[in-house]
């Protein structure tokens, strides 16, 4: 088989075949199912769609999901920066172990994380009990959702910023120092600004993940409508009530939001690329 005209400058075979298979399978598994979601939404009139999305319960679920995800991503941004700084810049016992530990929220199945966090923060749990004595109830409240979202998001900031901080040219810092900048100025005026694209990308990834997160949140959330009910759970509830239209409308809002975040991340990466001098 000869490569098609599209495959320029390559004498390797199989472009037509592999590209055809790729596009077919991509369409069958990803594109057609996602299209079905939008198609289903078009069966609704605009008024119906708007009615569902702006109903009190949906609106509250969306607010809880987006608001807490944003707050959790902010915590991840700050704590992620501190963790990545410690891991890259300092040497301490157990550093490599803690570096590996950062990946656990990625690797641990979400349902396992969910039951574990609930057990940990429940009223009789290892952390829940002391917190309850202080009058803070975490499990089955929005704080629980917030905690679960922090757990799930932390690797994104660390793993996005880590390679950039490692690759950062030491000469920049040395130059700043030799020009008389104190350490504080060097960190906040020289190093952090060059990490901004990576930090924002990590933030956006953590934010996006938290919005869609289901397994690690629903156990600890309490799932009280309008109070601690996240949008993905509301989709599941609507489905179990056979209210497909409602489920679909909420899903479309969430999907569009995550597409916007992808778009934003793409922009960020291009911006980052433009800032990095060519090697």
């Amino acid at each position: 088989m000869v490569s098609t005209a599209v495959a320029r400058r390559s004498t390797l075979p199989g472009f037509g075949l592999t590209m055809g298979l790729t596009l077919t399978w991509l369409s069958v598994i990803i594109l057609i199912p996602l299209a079905a979601l939008f198609l289903k939404t078009f069966e609704l009139s605009l008024d119906q769609f708007w009615g569902i999305v702006t109903s009190r319960r949906t609106l509250n679920a969306l607010k809880i999901s987006f608001g807490l995800s944003f707050a959790a991503a902010c915590v991840n941004l700050v704590m992620g920066t501190i963790i990545v700084w410690a891991l890259v810049r300092y040497r301490f016992p157990g550093r490599r172990l803690f570096d590996a530990i950062v990946d656990i929220p990625f690797a641990l199945p979400t349902a396992v994380a969910g039951v574990a966090l609930t057990q940990l923060f429940a009223q009789k749990g290892w952390l829940g009990a002391p917190l309850a004595e202080l009058g803070i109830k975490v499990a089955f409240t929005p704080i629980g959702i917030f905690i679960a979202m922090i757990f799930i998001g932390i690797p994104f900031v660390v793993r996005t910023v880590q390679p950039v901080l490692i690759d950062l040219d030491p000469e920049i810092e040395e130059a700043a120092a030799s020009l008389g900048a104190n350490r504080w100025h060097t960190v906040f005026r020289v190093i952090l600004p060059s990490l901004i694209p990576a930090l924002l990308t990590g933030f956006a990834l953590a934010f996006a993940r938290a919005i869609g997160e289901y397994g690690s949140v629903i156990f600890i959330a309490g799932n009280l409508p309008n109070v601690s009910e996240i949008a993905p759970l509301l989709i599941v509830i609507r489905l179990s009530e056979f209210r497909y239209a409602d489920a679909t409308a909420i899903a479309v809002v969430m999907l569009v939001a995550s597409f916007l975040i992808i778009f934003l991340i793409n922009r960020l990466q291009r911006w980052a690329q433009a800032r990095i001098p060519v090697h």
């Binding site: 869609g212 289901y214 397994g215 993905p232 759970l233 989709i235 599941v236 899903a251």
Partner: peptide, 8 residues
């Protein structure tokens, strides 16, 4: 699929 909520 990485950016689609599991529920969706």
């Amino acid at each position: 699929p990485f950016s689609v909520s599991p529920v969706i």
